[in-house]
Design a binder for these strands. Sequence first.
DNA 1: CTGAAAGCGCTTACAG
DNA 2: CTGAAAGCGCTTACAG
Lengths: 334, 334
Amino acid sequence: MGPTIKDVAKKANVSVATVSRVLNNQPGYSEKTKKKVLQVIEEMGYQPNAIARGLINKRTQTIGVLFPSVSSMFSSGVLHGIEHTAHERDHSVIVCNTDEDGKRTMKYLQVLREKQVDGIIFTSEVMKEEYYNALTMMNIPVVLLATSSVRYPFPFVKVDDKQAAYSATEYLIKKGHRKIAMISGTEEDPIAGTPRIEGYREALGDYGIPFQKNLLVFGDFGYRSGRIAMEKLLQTKAEFSAVFAASDEMAAGAINVAYQHGIKVPDHLSVIGYDNLQIAEMSVPPLTTVAQPLFEMGKLAAEMLLTMIETGTRVESRIMPHTIIERQSVAQLS
Amino acid sequence: MGPTIKDVAKKANVSVATVSRVLNNQPGYSEKTKKKVLQVIEEMGYQPNAIARGLINKRTQTIGVLFPSVSSMFSSGVLHGIEHTAHERDHSVIVCNTDEDGKRTMKYLQVLREKQVDGIIFTSEVMKEEYYNALTMMNIPVVLLATSSVRYPFPFVKVDDKQAAYSATEYLIKKGHRKIAMISGTEEDPIAGTPRIEGYREALGDYGIPFQKNLLVFGDFGYRSGRIAMEKLLQTKAEFSAVFAASDEMAAGAINVAYQHGIKVPDHLSVIGYDNLQIAEMSVPPLTTVAQPLFEMGKLAAEMLLTMIETGTRVESRIMPHTIIERQSVAQLS
DNA sequence: CTGAAAGCGCTTACAG
DNA sequence: CTGAAAGCGCTTACAG
């Protein structure tokens, strides 16, 4: 490999301690030796070995991030934010794709522990006891992103899912819709499932619209499931002028199926999504949706984590604001 | 932190050497001591410290991946593949977002060097001399992904861009189109720019269709630029029944603009894309496109890299097959 | 089959 | 202002 601190010490006629000091901007050397040392570092193209450094400092300057699926557009968005602030604050990020698989997740937790990461961001999935135990064993800061947990006291950053779903539904109502279907995500999901359904039902209730069981249909947040859910909705022959999909991908699936059935969006049917992924803008018609600020959420989660790492303090959870992005998939009903 | 090898050695009444041996499945101990050691490890919840291990083994079991933009759908796809095989073969991946910025890229190269990664995958961008120098200084395996370089001898994995563009254009021609516009990516891009234009022109030529300068328009591969390019095409008043976009995102932009102008795809205008991102399927209408096998490309690049790392040998570059995915955005002209 | 010791490349008291 | 030495948690000849 390249030259070590020893090599530069020798060449500069100083001790490794001195080289280390100038490297780390610590006091304890003359301007002259500093210059000399810097010069031979330059000459030899010396780069410190972060591994050796990590061993002694007990800090690796790297964090681990767990995603259910790195390749989802949702993950991309938050990863971008995380990477952004991690880099800004001199940390690297190791990505882990759990595939929503318990064993795989545990394996990653073990790897991250062995690799001595300084902290972990756990995204989108529900925190299981098994994970919690492994995480606390590691004794490093953890922040939850786009998920939360009442039982396990990790700080989190997320949107208020119920409130956001309420907003989406209310938006539709204020546009004059009263027959509003919902394509929900996974029914049992305590983060992105149940709360969004609650928000939907509560908005309906607040505006005196009776909840209709056959207008609520389930998917798994993915595109395909959105298609299937829409087909189901169509088959019930129930009337509805609008649908609220609990993810943009499912909204895209719904729009696609509508298109194939000759149902025009928004003329015959209004659709509002959830997330504001890149596809929302690219959709035909452009999709109105309730936006989660993914990039900012990633940034904030990383900031919180790094603050915990650097100060050793605990940090407050944060609810991020959601906003309705109006595009062209929702019609005003007269 | 947790217990060290010393702690388990003490508790098991053996030397650290012995513990190390059973940990690494090396010979040199009785079945009995092995059992004992394993038991103590279990009891204490001992996990080896990969950093200490890395320092001595000169292997960190981690690779670095550079992306112009981690959050692009293109990057997501390949990252997924990379992560998949890296994990399978016991390596972690550090992601780096270069923002297509030279300084930032150099900074990352330095970080990856300091962190002693075992190898690097460099994606999508053109290899500059500066990068090449830094990379060779590191003296570790490198593979190029979705890019290549004649001047710098790194193995690469990519699609044959010219041929793929030829196929897309030919597909349109065989569908009866003769007035075919192209929305190209960045004109000067030697990887995804020029070659795709050449493929387009060559196909035109081979089928006796004259190239029309005003039917070739430029974007930067992104969605917005696809919109602008489409507007430009429309303004020229030139006739065309089909457009070949050099990226799915630009194709999505084109379709969206067409929609806004009341031009129906594929009835009035056929569109073929390039990449086969997730949006291609979700598009309305679903987008016919020439597919790059992103996940497989990521997998293969990682496999090649790990092979180089593990065997110390050089590996052959690979051209991946492209395929036309027929969906519903191209009409057959009678 | 087993252990003592050196060493990986650093940082940090400690002593001068 | 500067250096010798110990130590971070491992692995690996070497010797027995």
